[in-house]
Each structure stands twice: as structure tokens, then as C-alpha cells.
Write a protein that binds this DNA or RNA. Structure first.
Length: 597
DNA sequence: GCCGTTTTCGGCCCGACTGTTTTCAGTCG
């Protein structure tokens, strides 16, 4: 079993123990162990071989043993016995809003309900409303929850949530009485998919804001309408929550609801160690606990003087705890707090740093806009250069270019550059298929006529990890390859990526001076942010590539920059923040076989 | 089950909201 699968098992064990009514801290230990494993950057096999797994924070002796068993055998008797002792329908019931482990346990214990169908029937027979701890409303809510189960449980692409949240935020900020407003949660942290949208608003007059929010056009259903907190269901099942807080609480609420949970736990622990209790409401001195230094050990930056009342924004909160500001994208509870202690938070790349993009299609293959239309749109964005990389001949499903058509395109691009019709310089490239054996789709002589080559996999997705990794490395070692396209080929919420070993690809890219793409298409966001910190440390450059198939596709750069930021990337690690001159020099140097970093 | 400059026991984040109650448990984030 691989790392991700084992993490899933641990998570499920947590849920099963919860349904059994086990010690909630034990449950939490499995959940945090699962997350720790998921976030493990190193190769699990290696960590196990070196017997270092129980040194990972959140994984102790007991979990390490279970993980090792799962890794070696793919099975775990403890897990199997647990699973056999609980009807699978109970786990499904947890997806229904309002039903947690205690209530599911009660339904099972008192009515013997084991499946969703039986639950539906019990609702229809009014058996639920008669149950102690339940009532007519619970019964109704359960029924509607069952009906919309799929839509509610679904996650949503970051980009889709981002677009709608930006528009709601703009309205919120325009309402009278709104002093500050932001969205929080995984959306603000830039996670590739989000479960819901959280808005945090500072105001002393919440009532009209609640009314506007629950009455806005985007809301298809109001699920809660309180004095300071409301929830609505948007089209597609996405839920949006709003919380209104007094302005002096705003930084605490924003930080709290931005999360992640792991990050918050660590922040709270840090506050506690200094004699304070941190919550979404503020920072309160503990009874008997005086102001101590942060952290008490005496390491870290000097904490800001003053009292919690002086905190006006998130930066003030971090500073009070002796930390440098941590951008939302880094708040995953990995090692950002340790870094912020010692001024180790880099200045992250920003959308405005991007000066051109490389992986774009035109009507020559499967794009919807012509070369000229794409160049004009790039110029309108203020970019200095644009790379055209249409598909190669083997991608016939995408109308891939033959040698002859590619030659024609190269000539047209040369003419366009000479005509000086646009201020944007156009680089001619190709998104060249990596064939199943790792060879490229075009001969070296053809590739030599181009400014750069993006090499991508578009076929034989089902190869095993070893074969696929070998295939990609062979392409990376090809002297004509400038960058590697979408590492795993995943389509978020739709298709798993092909099996590939990212660590080995990163090493190969570093050794051969090949740039790795951050494919910024909202469905891809590939290579994943989780690998970037390590890749950059090895000197691998990223290129934020929108994979635009029309001029609107350029907007996806924003999503790609978010991935880069989540991967701790600075401007220096992102190739397309370089000026036209620097890019030209780099590409020409590579063509002469000179490795430039 | 994890963790430890309070180190092998005794902690483990906490508050709002809902629906059920009549003072609170469970869920949620």
C-alpha cells in the first residue's frame, strides 16, 4: 500500500473508533497521524527502512507499527476487525449534515438502523422524531440531507469558488456598516479544492449584512440565519458561511477561520506556552499566567511589545507571538511556524511578478483563438513574451501538429516577431508528446528549429510507477527538452494522475536543468504544491503555465501562482518572472548545451 | 494514541449554533 492509501486507512480507523465511542483523543491521534503521513515529503519506504517513522511529529510507536504493516502487507488485522464490527452504512450516514458519530450511534443502538435506506424509511414512519434527542426538525433535516447527499459532500475546484467568492466579497465590501471583509478557509489558503466558502466581516451592525447575505441571488437555499452567523447553499451544492464580528475581533476571526486546523493547533499551543489562550475571539491572558517570552525557551524573534488589545491585523497577531507574518498559503501546519520564528518565511512570488507564459495553444491544434488573438491578449495583459506550444502529431485527439504544420507555425511566428506588430515577443515551442517508451514525438532536427520544448504525457496512462517514471526521466534527459508538462496528468475531482515518483523526477530535473511546469489550469494544478518546496531546494525552476486554450485561459496564471506560493516559491524560483532578455539568454544558452540555473 | 526545557503520566483547543431541551448534548468549524 502506498502512503496516500495508508493515510486513508488511518483516517477511516479514526472514524470507526469515533462510531465506537472511543476516547476522542485517541480518535484525534489517528486523524493527525493520517495527516502527518499524507504530508510526509520523503519516500515512505526509505523512512521505514531507516526506522525514523516514529520520529515524525504526530506518529508514535503504535501508529508507526500499523503503518509499516500496511506498507509491507497491505493489510492490518486491527483495522479489519474494527471494520467488520461496524455496518458500512453507518459511515455513510456521517455525510448527512447534522449527523455525527453520537447520533449515528444512537440511531443504530435504539432503532437498529444500519443503512441509509433504513434511515429514510424510519424518517418517513416518523420514528426519528419520536426518538429522544431528535425531533421533527431533525427528521426533516435528515431527509433533505439524504436527498442532496452527493451534491453536499462534493468538493469544488479552487478556481470556481474563487470566482464566486471574489464577486460576493466585492458586494459585501460595498454594504454600509461593513468595515472589513475577507474570505477565509481553504479558499484563502489556496488549496486545490475547497469544501465551502467562509466570509468574515467586521461590523457593528450585523443584522442587515445577514439579511443581504441570505437574500442574495447566488443563494439557492438558506441553511442557517443567525444574528452573527449565517449559511447558504449556492448553486452546485457549495455552501457559503458568513460570520460578522466586532472590528477589534476581526484579525483573530480571520486567522482562525483561515486555518488550517493543524496550523491553528500549533498557534494555540504557542499562545498557551506564553500564558495566553488564543481563539477566534482573541488572545486572553490565562488566569495566573503572566506575559512570558515567546517561545518560553527564548528562541525566535523578539515578540512585539504591547498587549493583545493593540493587535489590529494578522501581522500584529503573529508578531505578538514572536513570529514573522505567515501568508495564508503557507498555513498548513507543516513547518511554517518554526520558519516564522527565525525569519525563515520567504517573500513569495506574486501574480504581478509574471512577465510571460509558455504553455499555450492556438487554433493550429485544439485552441479556440488564433495566434494573433493570443498575442494581442498577452499584450493587453502587459506581458513581455508569449510562448506558443501546440500539441504534437501523436496527440491526434487534440489535432496535434505534423512536422509540416509546425514548420509553418514557426515561420509565421518569426514573421510576426519581425513585423513588430505587437510589443510581445513570441517564442515558438511545442507541447511534445512523450511516447510510451520515453522517446519524443519529433526528431531532434525538428525540435532544433524551436525556441523551447514542453514535454508531456498524453497516452498510455496506465503504465506502472517504475515504467512511467523511467519514461519521464528519459524525456527529461533529452537535450532538447526545456520543461516538463503536467507531471501526473491528474484532473482534479475527475481523474487520478498516472503513477509516477515525484522525488525521482525532481532529482532528474535538477540534474538536467529541466524546468518543471506548474500547470495552472484549475483542473490540473500539477505538479502539486506539496512537492515544490523540496524541488526548489534542489534548484529546480518552476514555470507557471496556464495551458491556455483561449485568451480567457491566461487568467489561470493566478491559480498557478497560488500553487507556487503554497510551495514556498520565491520569484527567483519561477522562470517566467524573468525579463525577456533573461529568458532569451536562458533558452539560447540551453540550445547551445549550456546549463544555466 | 501522542507528547515531553512541567519527560512515562496526565494532559490533549474552544466557542457558537441548533434543536432539543428546561439547562444541555451534539455538531461544526
Amino acid at each position: 500500500m502506498n502512503k496516500t492509501e495508508i493515510a486513508e486507512v488511518l483516517k477511516e480507523i479514526g472514524v470507526l473508533l469515533e462510531l465506537k465511542g472511543q476516547n476522542p483523543f485517541k480518535v484525534r491521534a489517528y486523524q493527525s497521524g493520517s495527516r502527518a503521513l499524507e504530508n510526509l515529503e520523503e519516500d515512505l519506504g526509505q523512512v521505514l527502512a531507516e526506522e525514523r517513522l516514529d520520529k515524525v511529529s504526530g506518529i508514535g510507536k503504535a501508529l508507526a507499527e500499523k503503518i509499516e504493516t500496511l506498507y509491507q502487507t497491505g493489510e492490518l488485522p486491527f483495522y479489519q476487525e474494527l471494520k467488520d464490527s461496524i455496518p458500512p452504512g453507518l459511515i455513510e450516514m456521517l455525510e448527512i449534515p447534522g449527523l455525527g458519530p453520537k447520533k449515528v450511534k444512537a440511531l443504530h443502538g435504539k432503532l437498529g438502523i444500519e443503512t441509509i435506506d433504513e434511515l429514510t424509511e424510519a424518517c418517513q414512519n416518523n420514528q426519528i422524531s419520536a426518538l429522544e434527542g431528535f425531533g421533527a426538525k431533525s427528521q426533516e433535516k435528515i431527509l433533505s440531507g439524504i436527498k442532496n447527499r452527493e451534491a453536499y459532500a462534493k468538493r469544488h475546484l479552487w478556481w470556481e469558488a474563487f470566482i464566486i467568492a471574489e464577486s460576493i466579497l466585492e458586494h459585501l465590501r460595498g454594504l454600509s456598516g461593513v468595515e472589513r471583509a475577507e474570505y477565509a478557509g481553504s479558499l484563502r489558503r489556496g488549496l486545490e479544492t475547497v469544501g465551502d466558502i467562509d466570509f468574515i466581516v467586521a461590523s457593528s451592525t450585523p443584522s442587515p449584512i445577514m439579511d443581504w447575505f441570505t437574500g442574495m441571488d447566488e443563494a439557492v437555499e438558506v441553511t442557517a440565519h443567525g444574528e452573527t452567523k449565517s449559511s447558504v447553499r449556492l448553486a452546485g451544492g457549495l455552501q457559503a458561511d458568513i460570520r460578522v464580528v466586532p472590528v477589534d475581533r476581526f484579525p483573530f476571526a480571520l486567522h482562525h477561520f483561515t486555518g488550517s486546523k493543524d496550523h491553528n493547533v500549533r498557534m494555540r499551543q504557542r499562545a498557551i506556552s506564553g500564558g495566553y489562550s488564543l481563539s477566534e475571539w482573541g488572545l486572553v491572558r490565562e488566569e495566573g499566567g503572566g506575559r512570558k517570552r515567546f517561545p518560553p525557551g527564548g528562541h525566535g524573534v523578539k515578540a512585539a511589545p504591547g498587549s493583545p488589545e493593540d493587535i489590529r491585523d494578522e501581522a500584529g497577531l503573529f508578531s505578538f507571538l514572536g513570529l514573522h507574518y505567515i501568508p495564508p498559503e503557507l498555513r498548513e501546519g507543516l513547518d511554517e511556524i518554526e520558519a516564522a520564528e527565525k525569519d525563515g518565511i520567504p517573500r513569495l512570488v506574486e501574480a504581478g511578478d509574471i512577465r510571460g507564459v509558455f504553455h499555450n495553444h492556438t487554433t493550429a491544434s485544439d485552441g479556440r483563438h488564433t495566434l494573433e488573438e493570443m498575442v494581442r491578449a498577452a499584450q493587453d495583459r502587459g506581458w513581455e513574451y508569449l510562448g506558443i506550444a501546440d500539441h504534437s502529431k501523436s496527440s491526434f485527439q487534440a489535432n496535434g501538429l505534423t512536422e509540416a504544420r509546425l514548420e509553418k507555425q514557426v515561420a509565421r511566428i518569426r514573421e510576426l516577431n519581425l513585423s513588430e506588430a505587437f510589443s510581445v515577443h513570441v517564442f515558438s515551442g511545442v507541447e511534445c508528446d512523450i511516447l510510451p517508451d520515453g522517446r519524443l514525438d519529433f526528431d531532434d532536427e525538428v525540435l532544433a528549429t524551436l525556441d523551447y520544448v514542453v514535454a508531456s504525457v498524453h497516452s498510455s496512462f496506465t503504465q506502472g510507477e517504475k515504467e512511467m517514471t523511467r519514461r519521464l526521466i528519459r524525456a527529461i534527459e533529452h537535450p532538447s527538452v526545456t520543461m516538463l508538462g503536467h507531471l501526473t496528468g491528474r484532473l482534479l475531482l475527475a481523474r487520478e494522475g498516472y503513477a509516477v515518483n515525484p522525488a525521482k523526477i525532481i532529482d532528474a530535473a535538477a540534474a538536467n536543468g529541466v524546468i518543471l511546469e506548474i500547470n495552472a489550469h484549475p483542473r490540473r494544478l500539477d505538479m502539486d504544491w506539496r512537492h515544490w518546496k523540496r524541488a526548489a531546494a534542489k534548484g529546480v525552476l518552476a514555470s507557471v503555465n496556464p495551458d491556455a486554450h483561449d485568451v480567457k485561459g491566461f487568467e489561470y496564471v493566478r491559480a498557478g501562482v497560488t500553487v507556487a506560493r503554497k510551495g514556498w516559491l520565491t520569484r527567483a524560483s519561477v522562470f517566467n518572472t524573468r525579463s525577456l532578455e533573461q529568458v532569451r539568454e536562458y533558452l539560447e544558452g540551453r540550445k547551445r548545451g549550456i546549463r544555466i540555473v
